[in-house]
Amino acid sequence: MKWFISHDTLRSLFQETLEKDCGEKVSHCYQCGKCSAGCPISFQMDYLPNQIMRMVQLGMEDQVLSSRTIWLCASCLTCTVRCPREIDIAEIMDYLRRRAYKKQVIPLEETEIPLFNKIFLRNIELFGRLYEMGLIGMFNLLSGEFFKDFSCAPKMFLKRKIGIFPHRAKNIREIRDIFKRSGKLAHSKKDRLLHPKLLFLNLFRKFIGKIEKLK
């Protein structure tokens, strides 16, 4: 049986909310596939970018928010500059990730990227500028990959490319205020920056993975 997607099926509440919140007209997408053709990460995604657009049109919110695709998108903007319907697909990916954070949907497969983003932001909130050592150390610790990129470290130190101590910002108060007020205005609580549930899940999965390898 052929199933035709009609004009009615394509008017989901999810699509309406998205269009209202981020101003991008997903309904304009006519599934040409140009976004997916140029996407450098498509080989790793579970749904291609154009499929995500269709899923939004059809209102498949749960599947979209728990997909790997939204986290794997590298924000390279290739799709955005190419879309013949002038849809900013990268912005939609951003919106979907922010929505996933807000709804606390934790993707089952891609836990590193959401974790990394939060550690990165926390780092800026603490130091004002990126403190690489802190970022790498914290990420390795919390993602359970303790010795990742260990081989690169000596080279970086020798070339004096990475500092041991963080920069001390004089205006750190102001910076923290910016973080606080941005969170308030966006109705996202600051303590969600590092969610224990996410951390636990991450470490647990790494642990299981290691045990399976040993077997």
Partner: peptide
């Protein structure tokens, strides 16, 4: 006393923050 622009993690996580940091 310039500060980090927030890079990719900011615009993925909090839209307003990703604008506020560069504006600062």
């Amino acid at each position: 006393e310039w500060i980090c622009c927030g890079a990719t993690p900011a615009h993925i996580t909090m839209h307003l923050l990703s604008l506020a940091l560069p504006v600062k």
